[in-house]
Design a protein around this nucleic acid. Sequence first.
DNA 1: AAAATAATTTATAATCATTCTAAACTAGAA
DNA 2: TTCTAGTTTAGAATGATTATAAATTATTTT
Lengths: 144, 144
Amino acid sequence: MINDFKHHVNRLRSSGLRPTKQRLTLCKVLFDRKETFHFTIDNLKKRIEKTTKSKISLATVYNTVHAFKNNGYLREISLQGNKTFFDTNSSSHHHFYDQDTGDLIDIKNEDIIVSKLPSAPKGKKIKQIEVTLSLANNNQNQKK
Amino acid sequence: MINDFKHHVNRLRSSGLRPTKQRLTLCKVLFDRKETFHFTIDNLKKRIEKTTKSKISLATVYNTVHAFKNNGYLREISLQGNKTFFDTNSSSHHHFYDQDTGDLIDIKNEDIIVSKLPSAPKGKKIKQIEVTLSLANNNQNQKK
DNA sequence: AAAATAATTTATAATCATTCTAAACTAGAA
DNA sequence: TTCTAGTTTAGAATGATTATAAATTATTTT
Ligand SMILES: [Mn+2]
Ligand SMILES: [Mn+2]
Ligand SMILES: [Zn+2]
Ligand SMILES: [Zn+2]
């Protein structure tokens, strides 16, 4: 599996995306690893620069990440603050969000059970259930 | 209760905020109504201009909204896309988020039951449980 | 009530993330 | 090889938010 990227080429082709040098580089950086992870664009840009010799323009990183997201390779995660996070774990799951550190930790889908849900408004369907558990330090924020 | 804003003055004072003309105007626009609502800064700025005669600078709207949020009068809501929403309903509750229209609909806390939760990491505490149900149109996005 | 002070407001500039543009480049088809 | 549509790119443009620093105002002190 290592050093093999035929499957990336295939996946890109089957999404109607040409397997360009830049896209394959991104595929390797994002998907050729055991653990999934969360990242920002800025974050990812730096990782590419460190990890690979390829130079990819910022515009292309944006374009590619959005293409990957639109084709279900990546998930976009919404958090407070004005930064957008992405998740290489595109399957359904939830998150701890540490308000102090900004850390984001995966929670497996089966570790949270939502046993009651409202029904969707007329003509609409529930497409995704997302639970975010916000964390803070244990010590009571004792005022004074 | 109408045309009475002593309680706003009191609340501001008890938060260590001086009851300025601008803050009281914001309090009236945000809290003197039956229904709670969701808004963006831009959104709120326009509402102020329509509703009141007061002219409040953009910087003050930002400052005040953040002060109100930090003191628990408002909640900040995180959604996909790069806009920040606020919620005059500061109590614990959940949301429908319509991916097509961008609409945000409240779900009462008791209409969602989360019956299994993971435990928080060491030294951390779960401060907030937020469930977002993403909506899309019923019709299957049939590809061709 | 006037003066002193500290907080607040404001216009405007600065920053930062993201998107747009249009020219150069490239993958795949003919 | 030539053609064409798709892709990449640098840089400009946009839009939201934050910073700055001077003017104003609320509150405290005299
Ligand atoms: Mn904010
Ligand atoms: Mn995006
Ligand atoms: Zn995740
Ligand atoms: Zn709400």
